[in-house]
Amino acid sequence: MQICHAMEYLQGMYTRQSNQIVESALKSQAAVVLLGPRQVGKTTLALDIASERASVYLDLERDADRQILIEPDLYLDEQAGKLVILDEVQQMPGLFKSLRGQIDRRRRAGFRTGQFLLLGSASNVLLQQSAESLAGRVRYIEMPPLQLAEVGADRSNTLWLRGGFPDSFLAGSDQASMAWRLDFLRTYLERDIPALGPRIPAATLRRFWTMLAHVQGGLLNAAALAEGLGVSGQTVGRYLDLLVDLMLVRRLQPWHENVGKRLVKSPKVYVRDSGIVHALLGIENTEGLLGHPVVGGSWEGYCIEALLAAAPTGTEPFFYRTSAGAELDLVLRLPGSDIWAIEIKRTTAPKVSRGFHTGADDIKADQKLLIYAGERDVPVADGIRATPLEHGVRLLRAL
Rank of each mutant, 00 (worst) to 15 (best):
L134H: 10
G260S: 03
E390N: 03
G94V: 04
W340R: 11
M178C: 08
V352P: 08
G110S: 10
R186D: 06
G197A: 02
A54E: 14
G374R: 10
A398P: 14
R262L: 06
V22Y: 05
T43I: 04
R105K: 11
A310S: 11
T187F: 08
R397K: 15
I304F: 15
V84Y: 00
E61N: 00
V32Q: 12
A311T: 02
G301S: 05
A64P: 14
Q67P: 07
S337C: 05
L332K: 02
L396A: 10
V40P: 02
V259G: 10
M13Y: 11
G355E: 01
G325D: 02
E375I: 06
A381D: 15
Q234E: 15
A171Q: 04
T15C: 02
G301V: 11
A279F: 10
G41R: 15
P37H: 06
L399Q: 14
G233S: 09
V295Q: 14
K345Y: 10
L35M: 05
D73I: 15
Y320I: 13
Q102I: 14
V294N: 01
A324R: 04
G297K: 11
G275Y: 10
K42I: 01
R62W: 13
R385M: 05
A149Y: 05
S121T: 04
L161W: 07
L34D: 06
A222I: 13
K368I: 07
L117Y: 09
E284C: 02
P93V: 10
N258M: 08
S337A: 08
A195D: 00
A171N: 05
G110Y: 14
L246D: 01
F208Y: 03
L369Y: 10
G336M: 02
K265M: 13
G291H: 08
G288V: 11
G296E: 04
T187Q: 12
V294I: 11
T286M: 13
K351S: 14
Q11P: 09
